[in-house]
Amino acid sequence: MTTTGPARQASLRERNLAIVARAVVDAPEPLSRADVAARTGMTRATVSTLVDQLVEAGLLTELPAVSSGPGRPAVPLAPAARTVVGLGLEVNVDYLGGRVVDLTGAVVDEIVLMENLRGSPASATLGRLGRLARDLIARVTSRGMRVAGAHLALPGLVDTRSSVLRVAPNLGWSDVEPLPLLGLPAGVPVRVGNEAKLAALAQLWGCPVVERTSRTFLYVSGDVGIGAAIVIDGELFSGRHGWSGELGHVTIDPAGPTCRCGASGCLERYAGKEALVTGLGLDIDVANDVLVDRLSAADAHSVVGTAGAALGQAMADAVNLLDIDRVLLGGVYTGLVPLLRPQITEQLRTRVLGAPWAPVDVSAAPVADHAALTGGAATSLRAVVDDPTPWIVAATG
């Protein structure tokens, strides 16, 4: 039998620090200390003490005072810029890179190298990414920033309990332990996750609050592979092993073409980037903006129609199962939303049982450019916001 004793004063303080930090970071407009007190139910004196500690630790900053009438002008609070930063890393089929993001959501540094990585050796590729990451870390720390942590995004099944990449069919990798191969400094904690899931988290934490469209959505990312992530009330649904969201391997036609995963008729074979470029007679390395322009031409309607119908069919299955009424399209699909939406929405209208009462909204993801890099960095920073105490302890020595 377990018992729960009274909360320690230290744990109560830690919880209150996190509540104040989240209130300021998640606010659509800068809040004053009085605003924070009103939103959290804490006394102004308590909030003022906690805010002072968060400011001293470089997590929050005070903006110029604003006068709204008689009395002392209010001092707005905001996340601090270029103090504590997160690092997002990614290997995908056509690029590898790193991005550094600060608490305001601004990108303060990045390196992205475009190249074909299909079939590349995992050890060599991750070793290169590690050198790139160490370069970024050195650059930002030389400017006085502290790196909270890093997240590595990979396009495949990642066992989040063991940090092992089980399989990434489009890279040709299987049973890889990626984190030791990066060789990041011991003081920078690093985790690994699925590319689409980290890109989905970018839609929650990697853009200004006013641009966040929903806290419940299905995120679908298009590249050579098709990834997806399920977000419910602001929480990522990962599944038992962390493998949820493999929409690209939903069967469209059991008698269809063979997929790299070994099955036949997967969605990737109808709506992935490889299917799109093949239908147009283009090379797989074509830039996304060029692909979008070609798909907008009149002679590409059949390619777009096939992809949109297949996407809509797979999304309808997901919506029927999950009861989600918003779909965000990312990756190459972001620029194709106007072209794909008619076919997708027609499939959703006819295949989703609840569509007459709850139509499904399909729109472009707010964070589109290498979203997994932003999501990885933002996820590391979110850990700081949710538990700022270690940073306050470090700041006070």
Rank of each mutant, 00 (worst) to 15 (best):
P338E: 06
R215K: 12
L198G: 02
A148K: 07
T278P: 00
L59H: 02
L198M: 04
V210S: 12
Y95K: 12
A7T: 14
V352A: 10
L218H: 10
A18S: 13
G262F: 09
W243F: 15
L157N: 04
V84S: 02
A199F: 01
P189R: 05
G156N: 11
P180Y: 12
G119F: 04
G206W: 07
V91G: 00
G354L: 15
R161W: 10
I137M: 12
N92C: 01
L60A: 02
K197M: 11
D159E: 12
G222Y: 15
P359K: 04
I392T: 05
W173S: 11
S238D: 06
P338S: 05
D135V: 07
L291V: 07
T334S: 15
A300W: 09
R240C: 00
G376C: 10
R341Q: 11
A133L: 02
A18N: 01
H370P: 00
T141D: 08
L373P: 00
A202H: 04
L50A: 03
G222R: 13
T306L: 15
L282T: 06
L348C: 04
P257Y: 06
L339N: 05
L136V: 01
A65P: 02
T334Q: 08
V188I: 14
G256P: 02
C261W: 05
I344E: 09
L59C: 00
A255Y: 03
T216F: 05
A18K: 05
R269W: 08
G105Y: 01
V164P: 00
V51P: 04
I111W: 02
I230W: 15
E211S: 11
S48P: 00
A271Q: 13
V360C: 02
S32T: 15
R269D: 01
D135R: 15
L126A: 12
C207E: 05
V75G: 01
L182I: 06
D293R: 15
R13A: 12
V158R: 09
L117H: 10
L132A: 04
V24S: 08
A74G: 02
W173E: 08
G88Y: 10
G272F: 11
G187M: 08
T2I: 13
A27T: 09
L295P: 05
H301D: 11
P356E: 13
V66K: 12
A275P: 03
G272R: 10
P79W: 09
V337H: 03
